[in-house]
């Protein structure tokens, strides 16, 4: 369905990417490799460098140092043929507001014709659920409809790689749910590789097969939602009452600890509880510390938890 793969390696390969604005380091040696296919979420608190990273990958922004390859090409030197294989959906697009929805879709498909067989307007609008709005002017669409149009325009050239930057910011729960369903439909359709950024863990867990957490200018955690959840919960807190007193013990092997505890307590231990830190707890902690300006501590603490 999508573009025929024109290169054999990973869809995205980044090593030691650095970005510095003036004397502020935003990316401090980011390493990343994403295989073709599937949805990857780049998760991180606001200001962690997600947008900078994705703009470098899209070829919209230069970099200070490091090697970057997107679909086998350095984005700084990507030509129009390379550009035709990418889809880009930005945070807030308000372009061409006076155009009719069908006109914009039909016209933008034209640009891809020398390179691929783009979607037909009606077929595409139907897929993103905007068939009824085809005759409307773009600026009369609701926020959620507008973003679905942006997705339609992002995938119009059947991209091999689609970037979604904070796609659901400012959505109500209903619009968000509809949007998530659309993303699921996209991944079912063809082998398009999707990289999305979000600061919302819940969204990342719902949409992505792989989550990369970006903080302090590099990737500090990488895995499936499941793996990350398990990693975050290796340290458990064991609580119990013994001789009328509350006892608390933190351990990495709660099962072993409890087995030994109960084997020697002569029946005095009551109200035993094992509490595992969830990924959400760990992530929220990270965000809180990040926003308090303690980026370094936050990263260390999070790594400690998800090691």
């Amino acid at each position: 369905m999508g573009h025929p793969r024109t290169h054999a390696g990973p869809a995205i390969a980044v090593s030691d990417l650095r970005m510095r604005y003036g004397d502020k380091d935003v990316l401090t040696g980011l390493d990343l490799e994403i295989e073709a296919g599937g949805v990857t979420a780049l998760l991180g608190p606001n200001g962690a460098g997600k947008t900078t990273t994705i703009e470098i990958l899209e070829g919209f922004r230069g970099r200070s140092a490091g090697d970057v390859s997107v679909l086998g090409v350095d984005p700084a030197h990507g030509d129009e043929r390379w550009r035709a294989q990418l889809g880009v959906v930005l945070q807030e697009w308000r372009d061409n507001g006076k155009w009719k929805v069908r006109d914009i879709v039909t016209h933008f498909a034209e640009y891809y014709k020398p390179y691929t067989n783009p979607w037909g307007a009606d077929e595409l609008l139907d897929m993103v659920g905007l068939a009824e709005q085809a005759g409307q002017r773009v600026r009369t669409l609701s926020g959620g409809q507008r973003r679905r149009l942006d997705v339609a325009l992002g995938i119009i050239g059947r991209p091999a790689l689609l970037f979604l930057d904070e796609p659901t910011t400012g959505f109500d729960p209903h619009a968000r749910r509809e949007f998530h369903e659309l993303i699921h439909r996209l991944t079912d359709l063809d082998g398009t590789t999707i990289l999305l950024t979000t600061h919302d863990l819940d969204e990342a867990e719902k949409l992505a097969e792989r989550i990369l957490i970006l903080a302090g200018g590099r990737i500090i955690a990488d895995g499936s939602p499941d793996q990350l959840a398990r990693a975050a919960s290796t340290t458990a807190e064991v609580k119990w009452i013994q001789d009328g007193k509350l006892q608390i013990h933190a351990t990495e092997d709660a099962t072993d600890f409890v087995r030994k505890l109960l084997a020697t307590d002569d029946g005095k231990v009551t109200e035993l509880e094992i509490h595992r830190a969830s990924l959400e707890d760990a992530y929220l902690e990270l965000v809180a510390q990040f926003e308090a300006g303690e980026a370094a501590t936050a990263v260390d603490a999070f790594k400690e938890v998800t090691r």
């Binding site: 919209f60 550009r83 990418l86 807030e92 697009w93 372009d95 061409n96 390179y115």
Partner: peptide
């Protein structure tokens, strides 16, 4: 963003 949109297409 019209200009940026233009930039994002071949």
């Amino acid at each position: 963003g019209t200009l940026l949109r233009a930039k994002s297409m071949p």
